[in-house]
Amino acid sequence: MITMLIVDDHPIVLEGTKNLFQENEDIIIDTESDATCVIQRIKNKPYDIYLIDINMPLENGINLARNIKAIQSNASVILYTGDDITDYYPLILERKIEGILAKTASKEQILRTVRAIANGEIVLPKNFL
């Protein structure tokens, strides 16, 4: 059983992303569109994995990831962005996040990454090296 919170300020993306996991009953999805509410929310109910959009107006995903890890050190964070993901690879090495996914990534890629990270593995694309 994997619990996951998806944070994105665009409701349509949020809905689309959630739908990707519909058929996987072992992954339980919650969503949050307001980045500033996340910390308060996970104090009561922590998740295994956080899938977070980087470009959010009130708090960007990188800061949010840091804040989550500050109160929940075992949390796994996957950033999720429409930007060029190669810019963010260094964050994985700095152990600030566990993974990075492009919004254009396929369903299969996403599922694989989530499962791998849930298993404590790190999935890196080839062009990272």
């Binding site: 960007n60 930007d83 060029d84 963010y88």
Partner: peptide, 20 residues
């Protein structure tokens, strides 16, 4: 097409400046 659009956006708003 998305990549092109993203490049376009990046020109308007420099990427990474307010994140990294």
């Amino acid at each position: 097409s998305l990549h092109e659009l993203r490049t376009y956006c990046e020109n308007l708003k420099p990427p990474l400046l307010d994140t990294l």
